[in-house]
Simulated assay, not measured.
Amino acid sequence: MLSLKEIKEKLAYANGTESWLKELEEDSRVGANKLFTSWKKKQHLKMLEKQAHEEKIMFDQSFCTSEHDLVAGVDEAGRGPLAGPVVTAAVILKSNAEELVGLNDSKQLSKAKRNELAVRIKNNAISYFIHFQSVEKIDELNIYEATKQSMTEAVLSLTEQPSVVLVDAMALPIDIDTHSIIKGDAKSLAIAAASILAKTARDHYMDQLHEEFPAYLFNNHAGYGTKQHVEMILKHGPTEHHRKTFEPIKSMISLSRGSNLN
């Protein structure tokens, strides 16, 4: 009979086809039972992840008219924050993307997992491009138009031009077959990949911004309007990286100008 330590070691590499698993299933020891139950749960989660992965690939392929069509996924990060750029990404994945099993909406993953997946995505991409839309452009155009322009730039900057473009809830003014997908990062593998690239690139940018402006703690909130961030703006005033057309910054600037005139 295998010891509990031996069982744990063997289960770490088991794929479900091993003959000794039948013996383990019938093992009456409480410890062996717990190990087997835990392994079965993990196997079930892996199966669900693989199933979801295949469904996302099928979703992307459903927009193709030929097996040679290239599908680009497009998404953004940072439309809502009070500071920092909006970052968009476009990515065309290789058809064999088994390394990306478990890829999901970036908001549902930890920062460490997103960073790990970003490396895998780049390794499994035929082409990708990440575009940073400046705060100045956001204030000039408005966030919706600035995001749309950034997404368009990301698509047109791909080294391989796609046959189909799938965008997370946005219509783009490009001469390519384009589809706006509501909650696309949960349905499309290509959009989910773009979501990860945009999010990790923006987080890295905001971490660097924290080094330049440590008082604002950009590494904690990534520029979003948290209570902590608003307090820092009220205390220190907005920086050049804050969006002047976003509240409460817009009102603060207006009040400051009014008091200067008086």
Rank of each mutant, 00 (worst) to 15 (best):
M151K: 12
E140L: 14
K148C: 07
E55L: 12
L103Y: 00
N115L: 14
A125S: 15
Q133I: 04
M170E: 11
D75R: 00
K137E: 11
D69Q: 04
K94F: 05
P85I: 04
S157A: 14
T152A: 03
V86N: 08
L109R: 07
Q149S: 13
K148E: 14
I130Q: 08
S106K: 05
F129M: 13
V155N: 07
N124D: 06
G80S: 00
G84H: 00
S62F: 00
L141E: 00
L103K: 02
Q161G: 13
A97N: 04
L70T: 02
L48N: 04
E99W: 01
F132V: 14
F132P: 10
E99Q: 14
E99C: 11
N104L: 06
V91P: 10
A77C: 04
F63G: 04
A171I: 12
D175H: 09
I57C: 11
V167F: 11
V71Y: 06
S157W: 03
M58V: 15
D60N: 01
L158G: 00
L100S: 00
G80I: 08
Q133N: 02
H68I: 06
V165Y: 01
Q108R: 15
V74F: 00
A112E: 13
G84Y: 01
T65E: 06
R79G: 10
A118H: 10
V119T: 05
M58D: 15
G80N: 02
K94D: 15
N115V: 13
H131V: 10
A83K: 01
K137A: 08
S95H: 01
H131R: 03
L103G: 05
M47K: 12
A146D: 01
L103P: 08
L70Q: 04
A90H: 04
S157N: 10
K113G: 09
P81A: 00
A125W: 10
H68L: 15
P173E: 13
E98V: 12
I174V: 03
D69M: 01
L103H: 11
E153C: 07
H131W: 06
K113Q: 11
C64A: 05
S157P: 09
A77D: 03
D175E: 08
K50A: 08
L172E: 11
V87K: 04
Q108S: 15
D60S: 07
K113C: 14
A52G: 04
V74C: 08
E76I: 15
V86H: 05
I57M: 08
I174Y: 03
V165I: 11
E116F: 01
T65Y: 06
N142E: 05
E160T: 03
I143P: 01
M151W: 07
D69L: 02
E136V: 10
K148S: 08
F132I: 15
I138D: 09
D177W: 06
L93A: 14
I174M: 05
Q133G: 05
V119D: 12
S95C: 06
S134C: 11
F59N: 14
L93I: 14
E98L: 09
G78S: 03
E67P: 13
D139Q: 08
D75F: 03
F63L: 05
E116K: 04
P85Q: 08
A154Y: 07
I121H: 01
T147M: 04
A154P: 06
S150G: 08
M47R: 07
